[in-house]
């Protein structure tokens, strides 16, 4: 099909604009991380006056980046593992069984995604503080509280996406396994989970991204010992005197693994993300 010339020129103009718009911050991040401090304390420079890797080393002592990193890694990792595990069981129930309350569960869990986080924040803060006071289980200020909170953020979407994935695995496989004497749980673990691996990996990436980038709850629910990267970097970047080259180096460090993982598994993630909207 031939296109009119106008469309071709519009394409060049629009895509060109979007490339610049998308690329500018990425360019700023990547080049500024290689600049000596003097370069980021004067008028903007497009190129480093000399390339240095010092910011990548210095940021670890300017702020306790190592501790933030460890906290983020523990919290996001634990939230991901738990969220994916819980979602696998729930999604199996939704995909393979018809039972009263099935629809209600799916709809209400998904709709919690739409509510403003600020609505849960104040009560959750109070509940965590009060649980700590009455039972001694410290949820406020600890990683555990954050793990529990984060895993529910990704849980609805994880259940939904995995249920869709399980639906696409033929039921005959389950039946054969049941005939072989496996129980339902054995069938889930031995047959369905291996067959759904790409979907499970995509869900895990999504859960990890959600926890890794969260700011609102982390800013309230953590103390100086359990600060995550998101809050730690945010706090530092709003101080009066900021070493921007080091902050850009830190941003690069925290972004590259996530972006790489996303782009590598793009195909699975995109399929899951878009399935709901398109269906």
């Amino acid at each position: 099909m031939r296109e009119p010339r106008g469309v071709r020129w519009t394409r060049r103009a629009v895509l060109g604009f979007l490339i610049v718009f998308t690329g500018l911050p990425l360019y700023a991040m990547a080049t500024s991380a290689l600049k000596p401090l003097g370069d980021v304390q004067r008028d903007w420079r497009w190129f480093p006056s000399k390339i240095t890797f010092r910011p990548f080393a210095d940021i670890w002592t300017t702020i306790p980046l190592g501790r933030y990193f460890l906290n983020s890694l523990i919290v996001s990792g634990a939230a991901t593992v738990l969220s994916v595990t819980i979602a696998i069981f729930a999604a199996y129930a939704i995909s393979r069984y018809r039972f009263p309350g099935r629809r209600l569960f799916s709809v209400s869990v998904l709709s919690t995604q739409m509510f403003p986080g600020i609505l849960f924040l104040l009560p959750l803060f109070l509940i965590f503080v009060n649980i700590g006071n009455s039972t001694g289980v410290a949820l406020y200020g600890t990683r555990l509280g954050l793990v529990l909170t984060y895993l529910t953020f990704s849980l609805p979407f994880a259940i939904w996406m995995l249920a869709g994935y399980f639906d696409s695995i033929p039921k005959e496989l389950d039946e054969a396994s049941l005939v072989d004497g496996n129980g339902p749980i054995g069938t889930l673990l031995r047959i369905v989970v291996p067959a759904a691996m790409p979907g499970i990996v995509a869900v895990a990436i999504y859960s990890f991204m959600t926890a890794w980038g969260e700011v609102l709850f982390a800013s309230v629910m953590t103390d100086s010992g359990t600060r995550t990267l998101a809050v730690g970097l945010q706090e530092y970047s709003t101080e009066v005197q900021v070493y921007w080259n080091q902050v850009m180096a830190a941003s690069l460090i925290v972004s590259v693994p996530i972006v790489a993982g996303f782009l590598l598994l793009q195909r699975y993630l995109v399929a899951g993300l878009t399935a709901g909207a398109v269906k």
Binding site: L24, A230, Q234, T238, S251, I258
Partner: peptide, 15 residues
């Protein structure tokens, strides 16, 4: 979309 949201916004704050 994939970038951790705070890293992106901090970069904008710098810009």
């Amino acid at each position: 979309y994939a970038l951790p949201m705070y890293a992106a916004v901090i970069t904008w704050a710098f810009m």
